[in-house]
Amino acid sequence: MGLVSNPIAKMILQRIGLGLLSLVIVSLVIFLAVNLLPGSFASAVLGRSATPDAVAAFQHQLGLDRPMVDRYFTWLSSALQGDFGNSFSKRPVGTIIGPRLLSTLRLAGITAAIAVPLAILLGIVCARYRNRLPDRFLSAVTLAAISVPEFFIAYVLMLFLATRLHIFPSLSSIRSSMHFDEQLYRMALPIMTLLFVVLAHMMRNTRAAILNVMSRPFIEMAQLKGEPEMRVIMRHALPNAIGSIASVVAINLAYLIAGVVVVEVVFVYPGIGQTMVDAVRNRDVPVIQACALIFSTAYILLNLLADIISIVSNPRLLHPR
């Protein structure tokens, strides 16, 4: 680290180093946890009446009889090269997961593109009209949205918008051959469900982050200089709240990638969450491991990004004495 003199570059490099370290630890945990799952792929495939010999032969064929340490390193080194090996069903994990991951990313991307700006905007509105009607209304609605489990929101939306009013399809089975607007139309309900969940969380935290800054003396100073309230929020409070807003946005974006299992299952959306659920059901260890690793990577990467944003938005670090 002595080679890097710029304190910001140094801090960012440190964060990246820590991120990589967490990734290695997480990969170890994933590997161990999955290998300690009760039941085995062999008995799942061969059934309860399989003879021990048959199970042993099957495990040998898949390489499951090799020592655990050996298997971990083989797995990790090929995973680092993008090769997650073959699933137990003989197909390469990459071809199973690849398209599914893409559709999850598409769902997450569209939701985020709507949710992030909207959440920050509404958070600002709430902070501007704190404890007044718009704030109380939005707070009540978002509190309800956070308290209700997402599958419930999903079913309510499905009941009204699909079953009763027939505006949107209840199942979001999309194929790559479809046109983009056709896909968007079919994705409408899962997008709306996810919007409810992440919008509420991000909005409330944006509001809290701004109000936290609003209690500091320089805000009163700005008011005493005659700044209009909206300008006080946008010019004086918001720049000081960016770090905390970035971290809550990061958590929600990570959720959109790794936490959407329930929503995907409800709407039968062909995303990576579905794949993971199927893989767990079939004890397909390579697929489970790959999914878990992708989810963790998303979390670590996004949080790393948030950390970097908050470092870069800190004037004390950006402009040292």
Binding site: P217, E220, L224, K225, G226, P239, N240, R316
Partner: peptide, 19 residues
């Protein structure tokens, strides 16, 4: 405020916007 009546606060360190 700011134009015809102005204010100088106790703690300048806290009363300037750090950003």
């Amino acid at each position: 405020r700011g134009t015809r009546i102005a204010y100088v606060a106790q703690s300048a360190a806290a009363s300037f916007n750090p950003a």
